[in-house]
């Protein structure tokens, strides 16, 4: 929650100095760097730690549900039974394409092409909505197949990791739509392209997080994880007893 709120804050609250911005969108600074863009990069660096912690959690519990299942103790569906790789590949494709439309939106406003800006921003938001629709459908389908949030340690970690990614995407969509509305009301001039650039940085970050999640959660197989006994043998060898 902290992250989500912080994101919103930075998204919209980041422009305190900028009424200098009525004249130039890039207030000069000691470093020559735009303060708001610097803020966004710092936030993204920090968000690496946020998703890093979540991903560490996922990696730690990854495969545990499968092992419990093999040991006959597990409850509910386990990853290899339920994850749908072709379906999620399409989601991943959609999100990658949204990164393209985002960067085209930025290129448009930098050229002063306001119509292009709105079209590409709208397309980005729409692709984001498709992605979220996909996630919603996926979650619902899992739920109907018996995998709820609390079913097993796989479902705990899966829903929380992908859910927080989804929350980031949702905030991004709201931000993009806000930008479209501002642009329609004439509030986004060519020299204010930084507003789009910062939103874009956030959006691309959400995309790269999905690149990691897609590989870690969906593609790396669960069935050839080392079994506990094998791991124990490794450990014995590691400490010089095997």
């Amino acid at each position: 929650m902290a992250q989500a709120v912080a994101t919103l804050e930075h998204a919209h609250g980041a422009g305190d100095i900028p009424h200098a911005a009525d004249h130039a969108d890039h207030p000069p600074s000691s470093t020559g760097l735009d303060s708001r863009k610097l803020l966004m990069w710092l936030f993204l660096a920090s968000d690496c730690m946020f998703f890093g912690s979540l991903i560490a959690m996922y990696m730690i519990y990854r495969g545990d549900a499968e092992r419990m299942f093999l040991a006959g103790q597990g409850a509910g569906p386990v990853p290899h039974e339920i994850l749908d790789i072709p379906y999620t590949s399409i989601s991943a494709f959609v999100l990658l394409m949204s990164s393209l439309t985002m960067v085209l939106a930025l290129a448009s406003i930098q050229r002063g092409n306001h119509r292009g800006l709105r079209i590409w921003l709208g397309a980005t938001a729409a692709l984001g909505l498709v992605f979220m629709g996909g996630q919603f459908y996926e979650f619902t389908a899992f739920y109907h197949e018996g995998l709820g949030l609390t079913t097993n340690i796989f479902s705990n970690s899966f829903f929380v990791l992908t859910g927080f990614h989804g929350a980031h995407v949702t905030i991004g969509i709201i931000w993009l739509i806000s930008l479209v509305i501002v642009s329609l009301r004439g509030g986004l001039r060519q020299d204010q392209a930084m507003n789009v650039e910062i939103a874009g940085l956030y959006w691309h970050f959400v995309d790269i997080v999905w690149i990691v999640i897609f590989t870690l959660v969906y593609l790396i197989p669960y069935d050839d994880v080392t079994t506990i006994t094998e791991g124990a043998e490794h450990a014995l060898r590691f400490i010089g007893l095997g």
């Binding site: 993204l44 660096a45 730690m49 998703f51 912690s53 560490a56």
Partner: peptide, 18 residues
């Protein structure tokens, strides 16, 4: 390049801790 340093710092730190 300074943006790069900031982000890569966060990325490396997060990677090491993960």
């Amino acid at each position: 390049p300074r943006y790069r340093y900031i982000f890569v710092c966060g990325l490396i730190l997060a990677g090491l801790i993960v």
